[in-house]
Simulated assay, not measured.
Amino acid sequence: MDLSEFRREYLKGGLSRTDLHQNPIVQFSQWFEQAQKTDIPDSTAMILATVNGKGQPSQRTVLLKYYDEKGFVFFTNFSSRKASEIKENNHVSLIFVWLDLERQVIINGTAEKVPAAESARYFLSRPKESQMAAWVSSQSHPISSRQMLLQKFQEMKTKIGEGKVPLPSFWGGYRVEPNEIEFWQGRKNRLHDRFLYKKENGTDIWTIERLAP
């Protein structure tokens, strides 16, 4: 199928150096708040790219649960493909795509597990059914059928009853500590605005440079 005629111009805005905050986390917060106010569906969704020990990349969508100056946090099963690949190579990339605003944010950095106490705090905030789902899903591993998965879930509900769901030892969070953050704003004629923040080695100082589209 020839898709060469599927195109549109990006006309909703621009981005100049004077628009940018010196701190990329503050800049991200400004864009993220605008994405939420625009009612973009799943504005917390971000694509996580990992690379295994053989150099094979893989991607999947995860949800940002919180962020601060230390990094961007998501949660997963530690036996999942993404967790296995992070164990082999903890250099990862995240991308937020907010098409309604004609914007992207790309984050490159390293992923590390958050402390168990931090994972427990978030786990306790989840709906009870989501807590139980973490127990019954052997994420990324083959299963015989959906019916088997639902049966395990029902067995878990019966077992737990009115009790509390404990934090699985095989489940928790990762924090992606950024060393590069790029802000991309679509522009007319494909002359997009791109600015890259790079952290100077061993410091908390960020430099900013404009990239050609």
Rank of each mutant, 00 (worst) to 15 (best):
A35V: 10
R103E: 09
F183G: 00
T38R: 13
Q56T: 13
P24K: 05
S84A: 13
A116N: 14
S169H: 14
I107R: 00
Y10G: 01
L48A: 08
R121C: 15
E182S: 12
S137H: 05
S145Y: 03
D2M: 11
N89S: 11
V165F: 03
M148P: 02
R60K: 11
L20A: 14
K65T: 03
Q30D: 09
L3F: 12
E112Y: 02
I181A: 02
L48H: 08
Q34D: 07
M156R: 05
S16A: 12
Q22H: 15
Y174M: 09
H91L: 13
H21E: 15
G202W: 00
E129V: 13
E69Q: 13
L11M: 11
N77E: 08
P41F: 10
Q34V: 01
K12R: 15
K113I: 03
A134W: 10
E162R: 10
S93C: 11
P168V: 08
W135G: 00
N90V: 07
P57W: 11
E88H: 03
H141V: 11
T203Q: 08
G172R: 00
V114M: 10
L64S: 01
M46I: 10
G14Y: 10
S4F: 02
A49H: 01
Q154I: 10
K188R: 09
K159W: 12
V105R: 00
N90A: 07
R190C: 09
E102L: 09
D19Y: 06
Q147F: 04
K54V: 11
R210F: 08
R187E: 14
S93H: 01
W184T: 06
